Simulated scan of single mutants.
Amino acid sequence: MAVPSDGAGNAPPWRLVGWAVVRGARHTNTWSHTDGRPFTKKEQATALSATREEFETFGWLLERKAERDREIAEATQAVIALLNRYFVALPADSVAADAAAIMTEQDRTEYERLLDIVAPDGWLFAPSEN
């Protein structure tokens, strides 16, 4: 993955450091996190000393994280839709395990696949109104 430039070979005004995309003013090298917090002096030094390989590696990691976040969001919506199909046939105080118990084999297989994405540790937490 190449680090973008302005076409004249100059580095972009942003830098990839840690788990944040940070922006720096072109002339002041004032860096901040995406949430607006300014970098500490140590973070500034790290950003200014990063190599091209580090930028490329981080770019790949950032893309992978975005893909994983999308995958989790899509799986979460699919789990909700799948469970809702069964919750309509269950009492109001039912939980996910109740719905899983009455699923078809095909839906149960899909449910388990989705849970591996959404809750890899095996814990599915859904807040209730109680």
Rank of each mutant, 00 (worst) to 15 (best):
A50V: 15
D93N: 14
E74S: 11
F39A: 06
P127S: 07
E105A: 15
G9D: 06
H27Q: 12
W60G: 07
A47D: 01
E71Y: 02
A97D: 08
P91Y: 02
L16Y: 05
F125P: 04
P91D: 02
G36I: 01
W60N: 11
A99E: 00
G18S: 04
Q77C: 10
A92D: 08
E74P: 05
R85A: 11
D6T: 08
A126K: 11
P120R: 10
A89G: 11
T40I: 07
R26H: 13
L61F: 09
E112W: 02
V95W: 02
W14V: 04
E129W: 09
W19P: 00
T109K: 12
A66P: 01
V118Y: 00
R15K: 13
V21P: 02
R23T: 12
A99G: 01
S128I: 04
E54N: 06
D98I: 00
T104H: 04
I72T: 11
E54Q: 15
E74D: 15
N130V: 15
E74Y: 08
V95G: 00
A47I: 10
E71C: 05
E110V: 13
D107I: 14
T34Y: 15
E63D: 10
E129L: 14
I102L: 04
V22N: 06
A25V: 12
A75F: 07
Q44G: 06
D121L: 07
L62G: 08
G122F: 02
D98F: 00
W123F: 10
R70W: 01
K42M: 04
R70L: 14
Q106F: 06
L82T: 09
K65L: 12
R68V: 06
L114E: 00
T28S: 15
I102W: 02
E53W: 03
G9E: 05
M1W: 00
S5L: 01
P4A: 12
Y86T: 08
E74L: 13
A101C: 02
D98L: 01
A75C: 08
D121V: 04
K42Q: 13
S49W: 00
N29Q: 14
S128M: 04
P120K: 09
P38L: 15
V118S: 05
R113Y: 06
F87Q: 02
E112Q: 14
P4S: 13
N10T: 00
E110N: 11
P38G: 08
V3H: 00
T109R: 13
K41H: 07
T40E: 03
E129Q: 12
R85W: 04
E53C: 05
G36L: 07
P38N: 12
E67V: 04
Y111E: 02
W19K: 12
G18T: 07
G9N: 05
W14A: 08
R68L: 09
E71P: 04
V21Y: 05
G9F: 10
